[in-house]
Nucleic acid binder design. Structure first.
Length: 573
DNA sequence: GCCGTTTTCGGCCCGACTGTTTTCAGTCG
């Protein structure tokens, strides 16, 4: 059993233990173990064999044994029994706002409720009002919660939530003439988000809460206090506004940016030093240590400033302590854009239009990569079309100099791992992007070998969207990314960070590993139409989340540098 | 269940809000 599956099982055990009414710290121990296992780059099987699995922090004797059992047998009786003891509907019921493990247990013990359907029925029959700890209001809220789960519960893409966040913050900001800051997972650059967190510093909390509740995009107010107002927007997204005093702002900004895991680790660190940390300050006894910015808070705790994207408790605190945080890539570092489709295949922009748009945006080169012949659904290029496009690019390169247009192709990786053209065609391109677009249902070992074989093709420059996932709609195909990344590292091949908001593939946790292995990354917008160029800033945000620096991304190279880079790869064939 | 320069037991981050209570439990982030 591989690492991802074990991580998933440990996390599920944590939730099941909560539902079973176990010691919450035991549940948290499984969460911690899962997280630390997930972020380790060590070979799990190797650690198990050498008896060193407990060297991973948070994994002790008991969990260590369970991991060993999973690795060697693929089963775990403890987990299976635990899962059998909890109705599957209880896991689903956790999604209803206001319902947690305790209330779900009460519902089961008193009313034998095991599914959301039964729960809805029980509410309509008015059966919750007399339960201890419940009441009329709770029953109403649960009914509403069920409605909301049915309609909106889905998480949102970052790119979908950000415009709403910007609208809300600017409306509120204009209304009150005060700054409104976006915090939470949006500030951290999460791929998908559950809600929009906003933060305001003011001495008039009531006025701010009132104004926020009546903004045009707000549909309903779900909770309203002195420091926090929660609403549901017409678009279905939840939004929380936090209101603090100007003095508290830096602490609150840090706190409400999260992540939960980062905050927990930071507060533990403060506690180690005899301090207490919360959204209102950093306290030694009753005395607040004054900080005027997030930077100062980190410095007081002996840390370099940690950019929001890194705050996931993935080693950033340790790195900040050692002064070894990466100098993260910025949008201004990007010199050129690769992976662009034109009207030759399934793009809606002509070559000339793309060149004009790229120049307007300050890029100094682009790389064209239309689909290859077997992608008939996307108008893949036949031999003649390639000739025609080559001729056109040569002309434009003369006309537009010093702007550079590199000739590339997005070649399908066929099921056997070969690429979709003869070598004489492939070797004529400046670069080749290899991509899986079909036959997703393969066994992990076969898919991994298919992709590794494509990487070994002498003409392959970049591996596109390596897991094929579509956020919130399609799971990644089964592929061992550790093996793929190791192969790319050994061969000096590039892996794409596809910046389409639905893909963001390679994922940021894998980026952290790729960087450690020395794999170079191309941040590629996979442009098909005018919106494509705007994906670059999201790509950079995710690259930052994956700890990337300018040196890690090939499209931070200047035009002549990337030309040399492509040539050197060709020379190795 | 994990962990230890407060070590093998007794902690484990912290506060707001809601709805149920009549001082607090549960949930959430």
């Amino acid at each position: 059993m591989n690492k991802e599956e074990i991580v998933k099982i440990l996390n599920e055990i944590a939730v099941l233990l909560e539902l079973a009414g176990e010691n919450p710290f035991k549940s948290r121990a499984y969460e911690t173990a899962a997280r630390n296992l997930e972020r380790t780059t060590d070979d799990i099987e190797g650690l198990v064999k050498s008896g060193e699995i407990s060297r991973i922090p948070g994994i002790g004797e008991a969990i260590g044994k369970k991991i060993e059992t999973l690795v060697t047998t693929g089963h775990l009786e403890y987990y299976e029994k635990l899962r059998a003891s909890i109705p599957p509907g209880h896991l689903e019921m956790l999604k209803i706002p206001g319902l947690g493990p305790k209330k779900i247990r009460t519902l089961f013990q008193e009313l034998k409720i095991t599914t959301i359907g039964e729960l809805e029925y029980a509410c309509r029959e008015n059966r919750l009002v007399n339960l201890k700890g419940f009441g009329r209001k709770t029953q109403e809220n649960i009914l509403q919660g069920i409605e909301r789960v049915k309609h909106y519960q889905a998480r949102r893409l970052y790119a979908e939530a950000l415009p709403d966040a910007l609208t809300l913050s600017s409306l509120l900001s204009e209304k009150l003439s005060i700054p409104v800051t976006i915090a939470g997972s949006l500030r951290r650059g999460a791929e998908t988000v559950k809600d929009i967190d906003l933060l305001v510093a003011t001495h008039n909390p009531h006025e701010v809460g009132e104004a926020f509740s009546h903004l045009e995009p707000v549909e309903t107010v779900t909770s309203r206090g002195e420091t926090k107002v929660s609403v549901v927007l017409r678009s279905g997204i939840n939004s929380d506004l936090r209101i603090v005093s100007p003095e508290e702002f830096p602490y609150a900004l840090h706190h409400f940016t999260g992540s939960k895991e980062h905050n927990t680790a930071m507060r533990a660190r403060a506690k180690d030093r005899g301090w207490k940390m919360n959204e209102y300050g950093l306290f030694l006894g009753d005395k607040n240590i004054p900080c005027h910015s997030e930077e100062e808070i980190f410095h007081h705790l002996g840390l370099d400033y940690i950019p929001p994207e890194l705050r996931e408790n993935m080693g950033e605190i340790e790195a900040a302590e050692r002064g070894q945080l990466p100098k993260l890539i910025e949008e201004g570092d990007i010199r050129g854009v690769l992976h662009i489709h034109t009207t030759f295949s399934d793009g809606s922009l002509s070559l000339e239009e793309i060149v004009r748009m790229a120049r307007e945006r300050g890029y100094t080169y682009i790389g064209i990569s239309d689909h290859s012949q077997s992608a008939y659904y996307a108008g893949g290029l036949k031999r003649e079309a390639i000739k025609e496009q080559t001729r056109l690019i040569d002309e434009l390169n003369i006309k537009m100099a010093p702007f550079r247009i590199f000739k590339g192709i997005e070649a399908d990786i066929l099921p056997d791992g070969s690429l979709d053209y003869e070598e004489d065609i492939l070797s004529a391109f400046d670069f080749v992007i290899a991509a899986v677009h079909s036959h997703f249902q393969m066994k992990e070992a076969d898919m991994t070998e298919r992709i590794c074989r494509a990487l070994r093709h002498p003409d392959t420059t970049i591996l596109a969207h390596p897991t094929g996932r579509l956020l919130l709609s399609r799971e990644p195909y089964e592929v061992n990314m550790a093996t793929v990344m190791a192969e790319a590292a050994a061969l000096g091949k590039v892996i794409e960070l596809n910046a389409n908001p639905y893909r963001l593939d390679i994922s940021w946790p894998n980026l952290i590993t790729a960087k450690k292995m020395g794999v170079k990354i191309a941040i590629n917008p996979d442009i098909h139409d005018v919106s494509g160029f705007s994906y670059m800033s999201l790509g950079v945000k995710i690259a930052r989340k994956g700890w990337l620096e300018r040196e890690d991304c090939i499209n931070c190279l200047k035009a002549d540098e990337i030309e040399t880079f492509f040539r050197k790869m060709k020379a190795r064939r």
